[in-house]
Design a protein around this nucleic acid. Structure first.
Lengths: 222, 222
DNA sequence: AGATATTTTTAGGTTCGTCTAAAAATTGTC
DNA sequence: GACAATTTTTAGACGAACCTAAAAATATCT
């Protein structure tokens, strides 16, 4: 059974949406917003994916991926993230330039290719935005870092990833001089708007709105 | 105006077929054989390509690429060959394993990607089968090497490319120990069947049927 | 609980890329 | 030059992936 490029994109969308908080059912409208398709179009596709046993679909009740659907989605995500590493590490693209190209490359079909690409890149564990890369068996580094704004106390953190992948946000981080791996020392938390005054790598003072802080994933520095 | 993956494949097919001998018109049946589609399907597509000014099409008379069509076809060929170099040089695929994957990769759409890939690979002039890679302006190294069987005299040649890209043929060449760049010394030409007795790199004696010799492109060794 | 608002599905239509069967044009032959 | 063979096009159909408009189911609000 073959899975079309479009079907792969639906599976990926369902996977992503179902993991936004804890694992949950996904509604037709959520998918339609995410993929910018009409809800009627989504319903059509959900029926076909259910036919193919890639999702469990009960009309009006939302959908969940089956094991098979989940495997397919994770494989696409693996490919996407590996290609992003290739584009940044080998072709020297900036981290805000690779998403659209990886959206195309993720659909290239060849297990051998992915295996060799993975080796060529040194079996990376994270993509350029800090997102974990599933291994060949679909295992994902499950420890999810928390957004900076959920840490309610001052302290020093390591910037390990982003929650938002838009060009605008990524370019903003670049422009203030923040990259994956940098240290972020929280010096003040403003109660009234939950904004943060921080120092990046000891010498670069910056101000983060709560919105920015909510999209910066950090680990506590040991 | 966007050109679909399918349209790109038709343009590439027309380009390839029109350059088999000297530049010539291509018939509906030639395309239908090459792409393994029915002639009726080809006719439909030719009408659409003509609409888009990618080909000149006169019913019953065959087709020719317009300048625009030619540019598009050459770009796809450039991408195909660059990706083949990537697969062989960087990912260590064998030369007989890369065609199908490159058929997919050739449709990835990003000028920036191709430019950077070209640089990453060291701006190669030939792909792993010895086919010339068009430059960014679509210029092709026009000096076409001749098949070994068209040289009617003994002498020493350099193996620079193949006329036939099937897995079976490429594996055959590998199995007899012949690779691009090797010297081929013609020691005998048999008149009755135009077969060749040769020596590869001074110590490897081989026998080439005319069919094999017709698919091996060589230059005279200086 | 009943009325209203929202979400989701159904019904019917479009374009792309394919097909088969039949008709038309071109080519080859005597 | 007429008839046969071959090539090509036309006509009509189908599945995939989208759409709009309308109907049905579910959720919300007093």
């Amino acid at each position: 059974m073959t899975i079309s490029l479009t079907e792969e994109n639906y599976l990926k969308a369902i996977y992503t949406l179902s993991h936004l908080f804890e694992e949950s059912e996904v509604s037709t409208n959520q998918i339609s917003d995410h993929l910018k398709n009409k809800a009627a179009t989504v319903t059509d596709m959900l029926k076909r994916l259910a036919e193919k046993k890639l999702i469990n679909y009960i009309p009006y009740q939302g959908v969940k991926l089956t094991e098979k659907g989940k495997r397919t989605a994770i494989k696409v995500i693996r490919k996407h993230r590996l290609w992003e590493v290739f584009l940044v590490d080998k072709l020297k693209f900036k981290w805000d330039e690779v998403h659209e190209i990886a959206e195309q490359l993720e659909h290239i079909n060849s297990d051998e290719l992915i295996q060799r690409l993975d080796e060529f890149l040194g079996k990376p564990k994270f993509d350029p935005h800090g997102d974990p890369i599933p291994d060949a068996n679909g295992q994902l580094n499950s420890v999810k870092a928390l957004p900076l704004n959920q840490h309610k106390a001052k302290g020093t953190f390591i910037f390990v990833g982003v929650n938002e992948h838009s060009k605008a946000f990524l370019q903003h981080l670049t422009s203030i001089g923040l990259k994956i791996g940098d240290a972020i020392k929280v010096e003040e938390i403003n109660e009234f708007d939950n904004s943060f005054k921080v120092k990046i790598n000891k010498n670069n003072s910056q101000f983060f709105s709560n919105k920015v802080a909510s999209n910066i994933l950090v680990e506590i520095k040991k």
